[in-house]
Amino acid sequence: MQAFVKTLTGKTITLEVEPSDTIENVKAKIQDKEGIPPDQQRLIFAGKQLEDGRTLSDYNIQKESTLHLVLR
């Protein structure tokens, strides 16, 4: 499924993900596309910070959801 990641600069990245993907996995995909190390990434969805060990389905993130990427 497709999900979108919006950065603070307003850029939107499109990712191909599965509901079973972990947040860690998603961060690795963002690193592949953008070169941002996962340890600098914080992903926010519905106002919550997403934890590495959880999956997209844990957070009820469905296709075409938009996550927000904040860098630390």
Score class of each variant (00 low, 15 high):
S20C: 08
D21S: 06
R54P: 04
K6P: 02
S20H: 12
I30V: 05
G47S: 05
Q41S: 04
P38M: 15
D39L: 09
Q62V: 14
S65E: 10
N25F: 11
L71V: 11
L50D: 00
E18D: 12
G10K: 03
S57H: 10
I30F: 02
I30K: 00
K33T: 08
I61M: 05
K63N: 15
V70F: 13
P37A: 09
M1D: 03
D32S: 11
V5Y: 02
G35E: 04
K27H: 02
Y59C: 02
T7R: 06
L71F: 08
G53E: 10
Y59A: 02
Q40H: 11
Y59D: 01
T66G: 04
G10E: 03
V5T: 01
D39A: 12
D21H: 05
I30R: 01
T14Q: 09
L43K: 00
Q49L: 14
G10V: 02
A46M: 14
G47D: 07
R72P: 13
L67T: 02
T22F: 08
E51T: 07
L67M: 09
K27I: 03
E51C: 09
D52G: 06
P38L: 13
T12R: 07
H68L: 15
L8I: 12
S57T: 07
D32R: 12
T12K: 07
E24C: 06
I36C: 04
L50I: 04
P37Q: 07
I61C: 03
S20F: 11
D52C: 05
T9E: 12
S57Y: 10
S65K: 07
R42S: 13
L71Q: 08
E18F: 14
E16T: 13
L69M: 07
D58F: 14
P37G: 05
Q31L: 10
T55D: 03
V70M: 11
L67F: 09
V17R: 00
R72Y: 12
L50G: 01
E18N: 14
M1Y: 12
L56M: 05
M1W: 12
A46G: 12
Q62D: 11
R54C: 09
V70E: 13
V5L: 05
V17N: 01
S20A: 09
L69P: 00
I36N: 03
R54M: 13
R42C: 13
E34F: 11
R72W: 13
S57F: 10
L67Y: 03
T22W: 04
I13A: 01
I23Y: 01
R54Q: 09
I36P: 04
K11F: 09
D21Q: 04
S65D: 13
K33H: 09
D21V: 03
A3M: 15
G10D: 05
E51A: 08
K63I: 07
G47E: 05
G47I: 01
T55K: 11
A46S: 10
L15D: 00
Q62L: 12
I30T: 01
K33V: 13
T7I: 11
T22A: 04
T7H: 06
S20Y: 10
T66S: 06
Y59F: 04
D58Q: 07
H68S: 07
P37T: 06
D39Y: 12
Q49D: 14
K27S: 01
A46R: 14
Q40P: 02
V70P: 01
K29I: 06
D52Y: 04
L56V: 07
K29Q: 10
P38G: 08
Q41Y: 14
E64H: 12
V5R: 01
L71E: 08
E64L: 10
E64D: 15
S20N: 13
G53N: 12
L15H: 00
G47C: 06
T7E: 03
N25T: 13
V5I: 13
T66M: 10
E16I: 14
Q41N: 02
L56I: 09
E24L: 14
T12I: 15
E51H: 09
T22L: 11
D52L: 05
K6T: 12
I44W: 15
E51R: 09
E24N: 07
R72E: 14
F45K: 03
R42M: 15
A3L: 15
I23T: 05
D39H: 13
K27A: 02
P19W: 09
K63H: 15
V5K: 01
T7Q: 06
L50R: 00
S57D: 09
H68P: 01
K48Q: 14
K6Y: 10
S65I: 09
I61Q: 03
V17D: 00
L50C: 03
T7S: 06
V17I: 07
L69A: 01
I36L: 06
Q41W: 06
D21E: 09
Q31Y: 15
V26E: 00
P19G: 08
K48Y: 10
G53S: 11
S65L: 08
G53D: 11
F4C: 05
F4P: 02
L43R: 00
L71W: 09
K63T: 14
L56R: 00
G10S: 04
M1V: 06
Q31K: 09
V26D: 00
V26G: 00
I36M: 05
E16S: 12
G35W: 03
G10H: 04
K27D: 00
P19A: 10
G53Q: 11
Q62T: 14
L43M: 03
V17G: 01
V5W: 02
T14V: 14
L67H: 02
E18Y: 15
S65Q: 09
D21F: 07
A46W: 08
Q62H: 11
F45Q: 03
K27F: 03
T7G: 06
G47A: 04
I23N: 01
I23C: 02
K63C: 07
K11G: 07
D58Y: 15
G10I: 02
V5E: 01
T9W: 14
R72A: 14
Q62S: 12
K48T: 13
F45V: 04
L56Q: 00
K48P: 01
I61D: 03
V17K: 00
Q62N: 11
M1K: 03
K6R: 11
L56F: 04
A3F: 14
I36Y: 13
L56S: 00
G47N: 07
I23G: 02
T12V: 15
T12Y: 10
F4I: 09
Q49N: 11
T7M: 15
N25I: 15
E34D: 06
P38F: 12
D32Y: 11
I13E: 01
P37F: 06
A28S: 11
H68Q: 10
L71P: 09
N25Y: 11
E18G: 08
K27M: 07
L71I: 12
Q31M: 13
T7L: 15
V17P: 01
L43N: 00
V17A: 03
E51N: 07
I36H: 10
K48G: 06
F4Q: 05
I36S: 04
T7D: 07
K63V: 08
K29C: 03
K29P: 00
I23V: 10
P19K: 06
E24I: 10
L56C: 02
P19R: 07
S57L: 11
P38S: 14
G53A: 10
T12M: 12
I30C: 01
L8K: 12
G53C: 06
G35M: 05
I36V: 09
A46C: 09
L71A: 08
E18S: 15
H68A: 06
T22K: 08
K27Y: 05
Q2K: 14
L71R: 07
Q2V: 15
T55Y: 06
Q31T: 10
D21N: 07
K63M: 11
A46E: 14
N25P: 00
K29A: 06
L8A: 14
E24F: 14
S65V: 13
L15A: 01
A28C: 08
P19Q: 06
T12W: 11
V70A: 09
A28Y: 13
K48F: 10
L71G: 07
K63F: 08
